[in-house]
Design a binder for these strands. Structure first.
Lengths: 198, 198, 198, 198
DNA sequence: TATGAATGAGTCTTCATTCAT
DNA sequence: CATGAATGAAGACTCATTCAT
């Protein structure tokens, strides 16, 4: 038992090591430029070893995406916990989304930019869950009569577009942006003002 | 004379063929996954032939980006031509930007997403020109006292983030979006409402 | 343990196989005409396999040169061991040099002819050691008052030129030479007679 | 007639231009590294044009070798013109050979080193003529009773080896040689002293 | 469990050569 | 006479993946 458990943990550790190494490399170099060999080298294992933990290179990418969406969904979930002022909750939610992206640029780019460019069988379900949180937050605002438009889906998608835009620009674009937080706050501010009933 | 001219035109045609093929492939597969061989196959030429028209693979990417920024800058330029209602002009500008992206998804993704992920010597100047148009449009609105914030750069960058967000999502994301034009209009509407003085 | 050892030996064997094949091809075809593919074919491995043993083509050349100089230096070293008649020692040294060349034509041509034509970072140190042996042998003759010229460097370089000349001609030139040993002996004889004090 | 002549001269000019460019490139880069394209570029003609003057790349090499041997044979011929002191004539002949090499390193290396490494159908006849001059000079010395060995072929070949050695070393070897003329003189001196009857 | 040698297909790129113009 | 577009073969090298150990 003890042995089996330690082994299981050990095994889990290597999986994690691989994911960490891969994620870092994917972002620094881009998915395509990263070879299994480079990942193996980084964690100081033999190339073949990777295949004991993942079916192939795509499976690593897949796993990283799931992980990312899952983490993001978790963060976003907190928003809807607080029932006080829905619009404020929504604002915090949008802020949280962008913050998650800039705090975890590797995760974000891999899942939301690189993965989109690679034909895969299925989008991870966690991705849906993220968006569901946003839907819920929007719905509450509408129910509280705080928005100038009553189409949950339309607003939710528009907001997503807005925050996704800042996030990707800030991460990938070498452009003389103004101070990061100021820009994020401004975008979120505009979005909220743009949907608020007055 | 006639011969030289015909040859030059012929040559230009092939250049275009290559660019068209490359652009399409870049978007479908991603820059890295596209090989010179694949481009050559698509246009039914030998791989070496490509090198008679472009120095290397990067040069093709470069050319596509320039082309894209140039086209976009041209479209955007029209906005500032009409001096009547600055805010309306801005709105049309934002709409034009997104429309350009969804009308030329290949161009857009290559230039604004893929190219950003590849270290290159220089960002094309046309890219700057695009953004300058946006700056100017924003400045006019501010000068006309139509905005609730007077920082040209801050607003311009925030707006860019917004439109870039929808554009990329619509192009790259296989998601059950609402009808495209409705989404675009909503985003632009939100952005304008979000910056308008009231 | 036993496994690791066997593997290491196995690996060393393949390295040698590669070097042997490369050396032979380099001489028959010339360094530039030899491709990694051809080497791989000769030893019946896949081209990529070569790269598990050598960083690149130049590294193979480098290794062959070092090996050659090292072997030659070792042979030449024996000369100066016998302190009896210095001039006789020198004669034997020159003979040894040429013999080494015609016995290992591949090694010799690669290291002394082909490698010289390829810009490399550094000349192997073993090359210097070879020439040092010659210098020493000449110095002893001078100290024993046996030569008609007292400039060690001048004589050593002149002798080197002489033996290098026969060696390369015999190896590379398809010319109706007289019996090889007779020619070598004659050259060495001339050189010794040409520097001997009388 | 006038036209035909001018054309012929023109044609000869381009042939020469090609040969000059090729020779220079062959030496700087080595025969294999030189492409027809590079030659064409250097003389500012189209690649295809080369093929109007030479059958293929090897033919250019061939022609350069012949040219070289011819020039050398001419120089060497002068030696045997002067019937006074045969041994002095021989000495001057050897000196002339080496001087030709260091004065025309490009010609020399291409013909005597690079060409030897490329399998060709036939050695140019001019090469034989060069060596014939040497044979003749040696024969005269023997007939004048000035040598310590009576085998013309043996001595001639040995001398050739000697002068070829210095020439190639001086041209190809990056080695801290003593002053060039001193070394050449020493080698020739040794060779003459080594064959002179005393 | 982990290794690491080996492969075959693929990467970008260059080349000698041909041929319609 | 001269061009230069085009090709097919080959160059060095990298990679995801497999498999015997």
């Amino acid at each position: 038992m003890g042995v089996q458990e330690r082994r299981a943990r050990q095994k889990e550790n290597i999986r994690e090591e691989i994911l960490d190494a891969a994620r870092a490399l994917f972002v620094k170099e881009g998915y395509e430029r990263v070879s299994i060999r480079k990942i193996a080298e980084k964690i100081e294992y033999a190339p073949g070893t990777i295949y004991l933990y993942f079916e192939d290179k795509a499976a690593i990418l897949e796993r990283i995406c799931e992980e990312t969406f899952s983490k993001l969904a978790q963060k976003m979930h907190a928003i809807n916990a607080d029932p006080s002022n829905p619009l404020d909750g929504l604002r915090r939610g949008l802020r949280t989304y962008v913050q998650f992206g800039v705090d975890n640029p590797n995760h974000y780019i891999v899942a939301f930019v690189q993965a989109k460019q690679i034909p895969r069988d299925a989008q991870p379900k966690a991705g849906e869950r993220c968006f569901d949180n946003l839907r819920t937050a929007v719905r509450r605002c509408i129910e509280a009569g705080q928005l100038n438009c009553e189409d949950v889906e339309e607003i939710a998608q528009a907001l997503w577009a807005g925050v996704h835009g800042v996030t990707t620009l800030l991460i990938t674009c070498s452009f003389p942006f103004i101070e990061q937080n100021r820009l994020i706050d401004r975008v979120v501010h505009i979005l909220i003002e743009g949907i608020r009933k007055r």
